[in-house]
Design a protein around this nucleic acid. Structure first.
Lengths: 348, 348
DNA sequence: CTTATCGGTGTAATGCTTTACATTAAAATA
DNA sequence: TATTTTAATGTAAAGCATTACACCGATAAG
């Protein structure tokens, strides 16, 4: 068989290898490698000779070979539940910033609530395609996480979310306190019928927030008014639940505490549709402080999370674990209630 | 909570090699490799024996070794200008879907308008860390792209955006026609003072849209009313430009055609602040049809791009290029004007 | 003046898979 | 039956960088 380009044949303009550099610098490949990996082990003169040779032949290390030999990949997998949620973009920025600085790449894995995908991404670790996993969702098979956390050499950090029954290194906020803060604020405005529009009920962060809601109402003697509705964090579920919750009734809530800004914005739309003025007749609080929350009508009161910081700290922690450096395994970052125009004193 | 074990997930974190499989299946490593890479080259019996052995020892190929040997990485770099722009999330989904199906990973590179970052990502190709580049922004050093496109073996596809003077394989929409459509619609509603709020003036897609705006106004004899303002696609620039454009004046525009939904939503906020009712006194058209456009007030009339499809087709094209398969180098996908509540007949 | 020490460098093994080429067994042909 | 073809498998050489170990000359210590 005569073919101009053989199947599997490589680049005709073959990249130079470390051998070519060694030849050009009249030294061994070991010396070249050392010049790159630990320059202090090499004479000033050699270093210069090798550097010149590298420039001369246009050498760049073959990363696959390096990865193979070092049994690492300098890649970190970040697992998200849903990349289209704008909440994550700043977290990603924070992560990438720290990762790049430390010479790592970030492979973003959108799980789309599909366990098979999550497993595929986890599998990148044992096959040396990734050095660590940054988990931004609890919606992955628990067994996977348990196996991983049981392994000593499986660097895994959780951010934002967490598992109630698995102790992973975690960067998180205090969801309980954040909820207490929000509800306290609503009560202080005079609200008595306050509904929580939660994310998926099984989600640990939602459970925490609901607990905060619960306890705060109880502390004010409002336990009778407890009412938790469930959404999925998205616009649409907020809108639909809003229509239901705000339907005419003599126990219609005067305030809704939403577990995401998207849902809160959905509720605002429902309120508009039902001609319920916000904040005059209804107060709405969101969660996350996404970009939109300043541009909706009315501007949204919400709980802000330090997203960039979450991403940075989570990545720092993960890299420490990868390098087996000592690190604080748990960090709770602070949130902030940002009061805008979607909340106000109760009027009757 | 019940922890279910996934099918075939016994000890996925300890990695046997192909040798272990060969031993267990009593054959050579070559046969194992062939069983995986080209099963038809192997007896039914062997195939089964090997498959059983693989399952038995829990083998998964070491990808770094494979990559090294095959001189490929099965990784594709997708370069975005800004990951926090929700416009890209569906495109990413489309890309990933096709990529995964073909056995590729997608490495998302946020350039953040930083040429150095873009260059770093481009460099992944010659070092075998990536097999192709999917470019979703024209904000990268032109020299890089020119060098790359000059190489015969540099698979590079552009999506959404393009370069006026470099002929790259491209998946795009007809920005000119989309703009014409939008402006025609506004004129048909009676608008005469129509402003375009463009993205960065140097951006080729914006130039096309401005050209469509221009020509449409000219076609209606409205050339005198041409007025192009410049933003950066973000909320804030829309808001600020909105405040300027809508300042009291006897030539205040009655319609604004924005090159992104975010800017359009910013304009809506400015209009609210200036007590200009939309659509009664001002019509606003956005571009992209992001999720939020249905939840703002009023719901936004906008031009929808087939984002998932753009991602899919771009990835298909790129993979064809990588595999040296024949492929259509240019595709223009169709847009749709989605009329909601931010546009209406001119009233005065 | 030896001997131990040490910094700098080279040699060669190693990581794991793929695949060209060699070999063998089986089937097809003469 | 002998010979050619074909199919299936095995052997071993890449692919490229890293690094344990060996080596050498030079300096420090005795």
């Amino acid at each position: 068989m005569l073919t101009t380009s053989l199947p599997g044949s490589r680049n005709i303009y073959a990249m130079p290898t470390i051998k070519d550099v060694a030849k050009a610098a009249r030294c061994s490949t070991a010396t070249v490698s050392r010049t790159l990996a630990s320059p202090e082990k090499v004479t000033e003169a050699t270093r210069e000779r090798v550097s010149r040779a590298i420039a001369e032949v246009g050498y760049a290390p073959n990363v696959a070979a390096r990865n193979l030999r070092r049994a690492e990949s300098k890649t970190i997998v970040a697992l998200l539940p849903d990349i289209s949620n704008p909440f994550f973009s700043e977290i990603i920025n924070g992560m990438e910033e720290v990762a790049h600085q430390a010479g790592y790449q970030v492979l973003i894995g959108d799980c789309e609530h599909d366990p098979a995908r999550a497993e595929a991404y986890f599998r990148l670790l044992p096959t040396n395609q990734a050095d660590g996993v940054l988990l931004l969702t609890a919606e992955v098979p628990v067994s996977l996480v348990q196996q991983a956390s049981a392994q000593t050499n499986f660097p895994l950090v959780m951010a934002c979310e967490f598992f109630a029954d698995i102790d992973l290194p975690t960067i998180t906020i205090d969801n309980y306190q954040a909820a207490r803060h929000a509800i306290d604020y609503l009560v202080s405005l005079g609200h008595r019928r306050i509904v929580t529009l939660s994310g998926p009920a099984a989600n640990p962060i939602c459970i925490e927030r609901v607990r905060g809601y619960h306890d705060t109402l109880a502390a004010h003697g409002l336990s009778d008014a407890i009412h938790v509705a469930e959404g999925d964090f998205g616009f649409r579920s907020g809108y639909l639940q809003g229509l239901t919750l705000l339907a005419p009734s003599n126990t219609r809530p005067t305030a809704i505490f939403c577990h995401s800004d998207e849902m809160a914005i959905g509720v605002l739309k429902a309120a508009r549709q039902l001609d319920i003025p916000v904040p005059e007749k209804l107060s709405v609080i969101g969660f996350d402080n996404i970009g939109f929350s300043e541009y909706c009508e009315p501007e949204l009161t919400t709980i802000s999370q330090p997203r960039t910081q979450i991403g940075q700290q989570a990545m720092r922690l993960l890299i420490s674990l990868i390098k087996n450096e000592p690190a604080v395994r748990h960090q709770t970052l602070s949130t902030q209630l940002i009061v805008r125009q979607s909340t106000g004193k109760i009027q009757s």
